[in-house]
């Protein structure tokens, strides 16, 4: 194993700048065994009591879906033929992002006893959380199968939107956490700020309502465009919905390009920031 070899590289080599994401990917590859173990550990803890564990983990999104479904049946007159599916997919996609971001924020500080004991690239903590949340999302996705059968929905080519959206959500959540995990070591209330921020954006994103309720003519077009640019999750949630309903993605191509570019930029800058600050940050934990 390249344990000590890697260490020398990390300490004496120049701090990566533009190559930061590449360096991170190399580290993840070299330590893939450990990454696998960390993800396996989280899954094991979560699903220890196999059936029940899985049941609990999908109970929350299901309960929320029922709640919002009833609320919307009373409050809104919008015609969404797939409403339960829309809500459920929104909640699952959102929690993938929210969990990746918030677990990532605290993971360096939470693992202080391990970090002070042995060296390995610290981004492993972050990416193992991302990987775990991804697997958890995929496992949770099975609960939509009865709905798909009920509506008679067959996978179309639109299903290709799903992997793209998932990768983008992971990049966004992890990219933001690359910043906040470092900041969290120095200021312990960063996690609270993240929690509040996530809660607010939960309501501002089309999680329990379709995107058309915001962009569908209720506000001027230029505001709708600004909204899509400011909120990448709006795009990704909508992509995931289209993937399953087969509906065409009603987002201008220009907006899609900008959203993807922003997400990649956040991940890239986060990587640079993390690689530069990490060695100093661990002195605070």
């Amino acid at each position: 194993m390249g344990v000590s070899e890697n260490k020398v590289l990390r300490r004496d080599g120049k701090l990566p700048f533009l190559s930061a994401p590449v360096k991170i990917m190399q580290n993840l590859y070299n330590y893939r065994q450990l990454l696998k173990h960390f993800i396996g550990r989280d899954l094991k803890v979560r699903y220890h009591n196999s059936i029940l564990g899985y049941g609990w983990s999908v109970l929350e999104p299901l309960a929320l879906t029922v709640t919002f479904y009833i609320l919307f049946a009373i409050l809104s007159d919008s015609e969404d033929p797939y409403r339960p599916l829309t809500i459920l997919l929104g909640i699952l996609a959102w929690s993938l992002f929210a969990k990746t971001f918030s677990n990532g924020t605290t993971c360096i500080q939470r693992n202080s006893s391990l970090i002070q004991r042995v060296y390995f690239p610290r981004e492993i903590f972050l990416f193992s959380k991302s990987g775990y949340n991804m697997l958890h999302f995929i496992l949770s996705l099975f609960v939509i199968i009865p709905l798909l059968i009920h509506y008679g929905l067959m996978p179309t080519q639109q299903i290709l939107l799903l992997p793209i959206a998932l990768i983008m959500i992971l990049m966004l959540g992890t990219g933001l956490a690359l910043f906040t995990s470092i900041l969290q070591t120095k200021a312990r209330d960063v996690e609270h700020i993240v929690t509040i921020g996530l809660r607010i954006s939960f309501y501002l994103s089309p999680v329990f309502y379709p995107l058309e309720m915001i962009t569908g003519g209720r506000i001027p077009e230029q505001y709708a465009e600004a909204y899509l640019i400011a909120n990448p999750m709006a795009t990704y949630i909508t992509m995931i919905r289209s993937a399953f309903t087969g509906a065409p993605l009603d987002i201008p191509t220009m907006n899609l390009v900008i959203t993807f570019a922003t997400t990649i930029a956040i991940f890239w800058m986060g990587s640079i920031y993390f690689m530069r600050k990490e060695r100093k940050a661990v002195k605070f934990i």
Partner: peptide, 10 residues
């Protein structure tokens, strides 16, 4: 760092 446990922004 002298103040190891970080600070509270609030």
């Amino acid at each position: 760092p002298r103040k190891k446990k970080g600070v509270g922004l609030l």
